[in-house]
Design a protein around this nucleic acid. Structure first.
Lengths: 175, 175
DNA sequence: AGAATCATGTAAGGGGTTACATGATTCG
DNA sequence: CGAATCATGTAACCCCTTACATGATTCT
């Protein structure tokens, strides 16, 4: 019922642009999202099936002459709510910026939603809080390894925050 | 037969310190590696079983009075070779620094191996090459999203390289 | 004629997660 | 007396990956 950072949200987001069949959804995905999110075609079909079972999608069969029939998926109300919830909430870990947070920005642009600056700010807050925790926890920095680990976390976190601040400029005009 | 960044290498590395039984291995893991690598106890037992089947470990049963018998695991020659190969090679992606590369540094320290500076240098090279590729590929930076994605990749890569250079100082004395 | 595109999947296999099962000893 | 520690696992479930299956049309 609850999925994490799995590609379900990508598929939901694509269907926010209107009803589409599996092949079409995958085409959209490959042309626009493959750069930062991976998904195979068979997995896409499997996910769509599961998502329909979970009630966030519904499908209609559309018959064609001389072709296999298409299964047109639409997003349900429950699906829309789920998607909008997701798209406006920050991620919990730096490691989720690369795919999940990026996807949120992508859909905000693609679907012309409001709130890009808002979610970027929320994300900065989340990471800043984590950064403070890391900096203040002076537990067992006793050897070279602990030092390296500690400075890695701070470096990743800091550069992520800097990038987010930069992002605000990119998105400040339209969103 | 071939495992990627799975916790198998953590278990192999722990057994490089000498034969141990499952519970003991997991104790070592929890006390020293949990900070940066996650593994559950049942998964540890499952992995040890599989690794024995793959010929990188062997086990001996040791009987005890009034206690369940212990299964003592030792690393085989094939296992040692596999581990040393792994520990001295850089990872392919920035995202693998946090767990996998960190684990390599951890074991180099823990097992008092040579070559910390060597692997750090190799890792810097790998990432620098990727950075050049990203910077030179001027493909379709057409909207705010592409700009954000591009600058994220450069930021993560750059801060990783800076951190690696800093790491060389931490490890320069003894290794 | 062969490759790519359209369009849908299933099957087998592998791996991880969570919960459960067992049972003695030792510590507070 | 209950909790933690010692010590080992199994079973059910879910998910993903890879390969395979089908078959017409359109492009080169």
């Amino acid at each position: 019922m609850s999925f994490k950072s799995s590609p379900e949200y990508a598929l939901l987001g694509i269907l926010m642009t209107g009803p589409k069949h599996g092949y079409e959804i995958y085409g959209y995905f490959s042309s626009k999202m493959k750069q930062f999110w991976h998904l195979s075609m068979s997995q896409a079909y499997a996910l769509l099936k599961r998502m329909e079972k979970n009630g966030i999608l519904i499908s209609k069969e559309e018959w064609q002459v001389n072709r296999p029939s298409k299964k047109i998926f639409s997003i349900t109300q429950a699906g829309k709510e789920r998607f909008l919830d997701w798209v406006h909430s920050p991620v919990k870990h730096v490691r989720d910026l690369r795919i999940e947070f990026m996807a949120k920005l992508f859909f905000i642009k693609e679907l012309k939603l409001k709130g890009a600056l808002d979610i970027i700010d929320k994300q900065i807050e989340v990471l800043q809080e984590k950064l403070h925790l890391i900096k203040s926890s002076k537990e067992k920095i006793i050897d070279e390894f602990q030092t390296a680990l500690h400075s890695f976390k701070i470096a990743q976190m800091t550069s992520a925050i800097e990038w987010l601040k930069e992002c605000k400029n990119y998105f400040s005009c339209k969103y």
